[in-house]
């Protein structure tokens, strides 16, 4: 290989690299900018925001919009419902998945593979929206908070993930505990649970994000109970309200009338509520990213 050829090739490579880096930088910007744009519009002077003057940099910083949110009716109840559902629903789902995932690794179980297949097939088959809805009605789970918690407890995909993980734990650990006289339940709590923390954390994160983002079950099941709407459903109704959202605000509250006056701006209220719904995800995301990645990898090796 002659020297000029080599230089030419590396120059060529550098140009290609530059193009690739440019492309990815632009795409990354495309992914971040909307969040940034929403955010600066919620903390800038509301008059400037109405005039459409806040495009790249915030001006006239204030946090009154966030403070004034406490006057938006129904937002508080939705926030509580969503937080409680996220915590409870995730916790129950994780415990159930761990327990079920552990049990399906037990070859000795009576007709194990039949039950396991029954569980897995539900990932690919469902009876359809209306039969599902009628079933929920039949079980008394319409307009009922429990509808957010109980159906989500058995998550077949997560059970598969846990099962795959537990199968990779050396059997000797469990055997020695059994020899020491530990029963199934003790083995589960003392050996299996502590050793599966990574996978349990992974499914917990996925579950929590899923619960936080839940919209469809609220839309379908809570038609008579607006106080049980999830945050996403609430946001959806706000986004579709074309009238002035100021009507939704009660005049009284912990903030000055001035702050409320400033809030009488549909656009800003929509932005601020959206931001409040996004922020928790953006906050946990950096810490949880490795778990997300682990989750999708485990799913891929399932086969």
């Amino acid at each position: 290989m002659s020297k000029t050829n080599h230089i030419k090739r590396s120059l060529n490579d550098k140009i290609v690299n530059a193009i690739i880096i440019l492309f990815f930088s632009l795409f990354t910007l495309l992914c971040i900018f909307p969040f940034y744009y929403l955010f600066i519009n919620t903390i800038s002077d509301n008059d400037l925001v109405s005039a459409g003057a806040i495009n790249f940099l915030p001006r006239g910083l204030h946090i009154n919009n966030y403070i004034a949110l406490q006057n938006v009716s129904d937002l508080g109840s939705s926030a509580i419902v969503t937080v409680v559902r996220t915590i409870l629903g995730t916790a129950l789902m994780v415990v159930t998945s761990a327990w079920a995932g552990y049990l399906v690794t037990k070859q000795k179980m009576w007709h194990r593979s039949l039950w396991y297949r029954c569980l897995v097939i539900t990932m690919y088959f469902n009876a359809g929206l209306v039969p599902w809805y009628m079933n929920m009605m039949m079980l008394g789970l319409t307009n009922n908070f429990l509808a957010y918690i109980i159906p989500g407890m058995v998550a077949p995909y997560n059970i598969i993930l846990v099962k795959t993980y537990i199968e990779s734990i050396p059997a000797a650990l469990e055997e020695s505990a059994v020899i020491d006289g530990a029963g199934t339940f003790k083995v589960f709590t003392r050996i299996i649970m502590p050793l599966s923390v990574p996978i349990l954390a992974t499914i917990a994160i996925f579950g929590a994000v899923g619960n936080w983002n839940s919209f469809q079950d609220s839309l379908l099941l809570m038609s008579n109970r607006p106080d049980l709407y999830t945050l996403q459903h609430r946001l959806y109704t706000y986004l579709n309200t074309s009238s002035n959202l100021g009507a939704l605000m009660s005049g009284s509250g912990g903030v000055s009338t001035q702050a409320v006056q400033n809030m009488l701006n549909t656009k800003v209220i929509k932005y601020t509520i959206s931001m409040v719904t996004i922020i928790p995800i953006l906050l946990v995301y950096p810490f949880m990213q490795r778990y997300f990645v682990k989750g999708i990898m485990l799913g891929a090796v399932k086969g």
Binding site: L38, K270, Y271
Partner: peptide, 13 residues
């Protein structure tokens, strides 16, 4: 990791 409702909120913005 954001819901479609939030994607729509962004689309509006």
């Amino acid at each position: 990791f954001i819901s479609w409702v939030l994607v729509y909120a962004i689309a509006l913005a």
